[in-house]
Design a protein around this nucleic acid. Structure first.
Length: 824
RNA sequence: GCCGGGAUGGCGGAACUGGCAGACGCACGGGACUUAAAAUCCCGCGGUGGGAACACUGUGUGGGUUCAAUUCCCACUCCCGGCACCA
């Protein structure tokens, strides 16, 4: 009997699998296909911790399982290698980001191998490789050609720590998504992708994918579709009586007769032109104040609303009424038109503002049975109803009034239907070195022109220094040789665009690249993409709900529109693994000194133990804390199993005799069914529990009679157990399989089927209840009918005892489960 | 504030479509082995009462439906996540 020496077993098989290219994926096959993909990992210098393994272990189980089931499985891995941490680390260590990245990816790969994963490493990709980012640039040009990439000067989120701008969804709660620093606003000329053009499709197509509802809702909220109208008011300047049209966005055009004032965002360009001399000082002070506020302060809904009167008045295009124009920072320049019509009677925010500054409140909507009270806000007041105090629109329902006003407004040219989105265009310029250069050239005569496809890639120059300037200009701007180029149109001197692309651009198409990772003619081979895509199973954390997952969907739709691919959603099924907290219940982090690495766990217990433990500890989607005792329990199980395997192998050498082991066939068939169903449903925790249960059943039998080991049934049961366990614990099962003299790798064995007829037990235990309380059980033939069950139950001693002196009113029989006797 | 998700022993969790709550693991207690400890193996383990048989009670709280509720319905409490002045 051999000791369980995982230190030698695991590396042995890992090396052999690698040498034999055991997990290489075929491109053409008659088998059904399965594309199982992990989120594109960013190879940080810290390496993997056991939390990351909660992603890679389950996808490995799935991949191994489907291979055994006869699927052609694509399970690749690569590196989202461009990005700030590598660049910052490089600056700190005075090395090149390329070198840092090489070191980090090598470490990640080593760690993934340590877990016994079955990636096809021949398909490894790296987004910072020119062979890859050449095509990222190619896609940039595709978007540009399709009018979906544009340059615009505007105020943008700026992270003073990362020294770069951020896209809207990357500035969460006024903080940088990466480093948590409070973001500022900076006026800069930047490149954008017009993701808003796809807002409706991005929202609608969510119905077609099998994703967690939570993620779909987050995306819908983020897109934030809002159907309403734009209305033009005319503001009469208080200083020179000039007239200035101002457009407001409203979802409640029907309430326009109740608009008692207008509010502009403090940054609204019209403010300067309309403000009265008397109010100018106050207005200037207010604007200056608003600027110094952090976005966190400004966005807080707790904060009291403030504002200042401009001295100017606007004319309501529907009533001709003159209403005062205010500025207030509760109106955001970035949403809608930066100006609103305030209807305090029917909007809680306008109500609060009107109360504070003594502005008039006029009810224009009524509801049957509701009395409007001007002094206090009631949430009902924002409900739909019918109109009053609205002249020719009186008595219409809100919906009818809306339609009538649109019609009238369109005729007069003062209003039109309009839809707004919370989502903004995707700002992709980054003022940092370590990214894919934006393939554009600025020519003094021809303007901004794209780099011709034939000149791709625009290589990131190798340079000494690339520290961010912090001025809003990329470090590439300082590299004269690189910046100075010739215009591809006129041949004259021109300058390269010096910003690089957001790393999320690189990860917006990578799932396609795995199908033909080394193709140097096209970004992907259409036939292969047609075969493999969409991704059948995409697995990663929930943190990318509105970033990567939205961007990627957007690019996919653009490619579809360009005729490059034949599908509109890249990821058919999405699963989010739960977070793994450290043993202290805290998030694992370097600063808390509670990081657990797979290296240390594998060293102490082996990869198979780590795998089983992570699969067992909690449901896949659920957050759970690491337990030092828990992992040793998993290790105990692995060792016991190893020992039983060894004893079985020893017993297999002699003559085998047939035997009838009660329940044996039932158990192995039950196990097979359970494991198969649980794996497909991602219920790995109960699958592992089922293995443990089966093991307990087996060891009970051996304890009672050791000679059972050398029976035909035992040996075939043991074989099947190993095959079922192979995706979970690939090393030990392979080792035992080989010791058994199994032919080929256990990982190429066909997945066992179960026999439904063997699942039927001849006898079952049925619980007997009196008035819903279990008073005992009885063992009956499983094919007993209701009548027999009822009679049998009534004959039980404990039933006689409880029913004595009572009248049996009713007997409920649930076959094979329960008999409930209702008395008196 | 709005939108999601959740609450089951000392702990992680299990329970098909309403049918014996607590599978499996951990921790803990007892025993075996050992000079001893660790490891290993065996037994026990929701709470209360009881020597035991057994009884009562128990899935966040309060109601309801049902022969039967962790599961369905109504009201509420707390926790976690996301969004947050979006007009």
């Amino acid at each position: 009997m051999r000791e369980y020496d995982f230190h030698s077993i695991e590396p042995k098989w890992q090396d052999l699998w690698e040498a034999e290219k055991a997990y290489r994926t075929e491109d053409a096959s008659d088998k059904p296909k399965l594309y199982c993909l992990d989120y594109f990992p960013y190879p940080s210098g810290d390496g993997l911790h056991v939390g990351h393994c909660r992603n890679y272990i389950p996808t490995d189980v799935i991949s191994r399982y489907y291979r055994m089931k006869g699927f052609n499985v694509l399970h690749p891995m690569g590196w989202d290698a461009f990005g700030l941490p590598a660049e910052n680390e490089a600056i700190r260590l005075k090395k090149s980001p390329r070198e840092i990245t090489r070191r980090n990816t090598a470490n990640f790969k080593r760690q993934l191998k340590l877990l016994g994963t079955s990636y096809d490493w021949e398909r490894e990709i790296n987004s910072s490789d020119p062979e890859y980012y050449r095509w990222t640039q190619w896609f940039f040009l595709l978007l540009y050609k399709r009018g979906l990439a544009y340059e615009k000067e505007s105020e943008q989120w700026w992270c003073p720590h990362c020294k770069t701008v951020l896209a809207n969804e990357q500035a969460k709660d006024g903080k940088c998504w990466r480093c948590g620093t409070a973001v500022e606003k900076k006026q800069l000329k930047q490149w954008f992708f017009k993701i808003t053009d796809y807002a409706d499709r991005l929202a609608d197509d969510l119905d077609t994918v099998d994703w967690p509802e939570r993620i779909k809702i987050m995306q819908r909220n983020w897109i934030g579709k809002s159907v309403g109208a734009e209305v033009v008011f005319e503001i009469v300047s208080a200083s020179d009586s000039s007239r200035h049209p101002v457009t407001v966005f409203t979802t409640r055009l029907d309430t326009i007769m109740g608009a008692t004032f207008l509010v502009l965002a403090p940054e609204h360009p019209l403010v300067q032109e309309i403000v009265s001399d008397g109010q100018r000082a106050d207005v200037e002070t207010y604007i200056a104040n608003a600027k110094t506020k952090t976005e966190i302060d400004r966005m807080s809904t707790e904060k009291e609303k403030t504002g200042v009167f401009t001295g100017a008045y606007a004319i309501n295009p529907f009533s001709g009424e003159k209403v005062p124009v205010w500025i207030a920072d509760y109106v955001l320049m970035g949403y809608g038109t930066g100006a609103i019509m305030a209807v305090p009677a029917h909007d809680s925010r306008d109500f609060v503002f009107a109360k504070k500054y003594g502005l008039p409140i006029r009810q224009v909507i009524t509801w049957p049975g509701v009395t409007y009270e001007e002094s206090v806000w009631n949430d009902l007041y924002s409900e739909h109803g019918s109109l009053v105090n609205s002249g020719r629109f009186d008595d219409l329902t809100t919906e009818a009034a809306f339609a009538a006003m649109i019609a009238e407004g369109q005729e007069k040219g003062v209003a039109k239907a309009e839809t707004n989105y919370h989502m903004r265009d995707w700002l992709i310029s980054r003022q940092r070195y370590w990214g894919a250069p934006i393939p554009m050239i600025h020519c003094p005569t021809c303007g901004t022109v794209p780099v011709p496809e034939s000149q791709l890639p625009v290589l990131l120059p190798d340079v000494e220094g690339y520290e961010p300037s912090g001025t809003g200009e990329s470090p590439l701007a300082g590299i004269k040789d690189w910046v100075e180029t010739t215009c591809p149109v006129c041949g004259g001197p021109a300058r390269r665009e010096t910003d690089t692309m957001d790393g999320f651009a690189c990860s917006s198409w990578y799932e396609l690249r795995y199908t033909s990772p080394h193709d140097d003619k096209v970004p992907f081979d259409r036939a292969k993409v047609d075969y493999w895509l969409p991704v059948d199973l995409y697995v990663g954390g929930a943190e990318h709900a509105v970033m990567h997952l939205l961007y990627s969907r957007f690019w996919t739709k653009v490619m579809y529109d360009a005729g490059l691919i034949g599908f509109t959603e890249p990821f058919a099924r999405l699963m989010n693994q739960g977070m793994l907290l450290s043993y202290d219940g805290q998030k694992m982090s370097k600063s808390r000194h509670n990081v657990i690495t797979p290296d240390e766990v594998v060293e102490q217990y082996g990869a198979d133990t780590l795998r089983l433990y992570e699969l067992f500890m909690a449901p896949f989607e659920q957050e759970v804390a690491w337990s030092k005792e828990g992992i040793s329990g998993a290790h105990r199980f692995v060792k016991r199993l190893w020992e039983l395997g060894q004893r079985s192998i020893d017993a297999s050498h002699g003559e085998l005799r047939p035997a009838r082991i009660p329940g044996f066939e039932l158990h192995i068939n039950k196990l097979t069914k359970k494991i198969t169903e649980d794996v497909e449903k991602f219920k790995f925790n109960t699958a592992v529990a089922a293995f443990m249960e089966y093991f307990n059943f087996l060891s009970g039998i051996v304890r009672a009679d050791e000679t059972v080991l050398s029976t035909v049934e035992w040996q075939s049961g043991m074989h099947q157990l190993l095959v079922l366990l192979a995706p979970f614990a690939p090393h030990m099962t392979e080792e035992l399989w080989q010791e058994y003299g199994g032919v080929g790798s256990i990982h190429r064995q066909p997945w066992p089927a179960w026999d439904d007829s063997k699942l039927v037990e001849s006898e079952v235990e049925v619980a007997v209840q009196i008035n819903g309380k279990v008073r005992g059980t009885m063992v009956v033939a499983s094919d007993s009918n209701d009548d027999e069950l009822e009679k049998l139950a009534l004959r039980q001693d404990f039933v006689v005892k409880y029913t004595a002196g009572h009248i049996v009113k009713r007997v409920v029989v649930i076959k094979g489960k329960i008999v409930n006797i209702v008395v008196q």
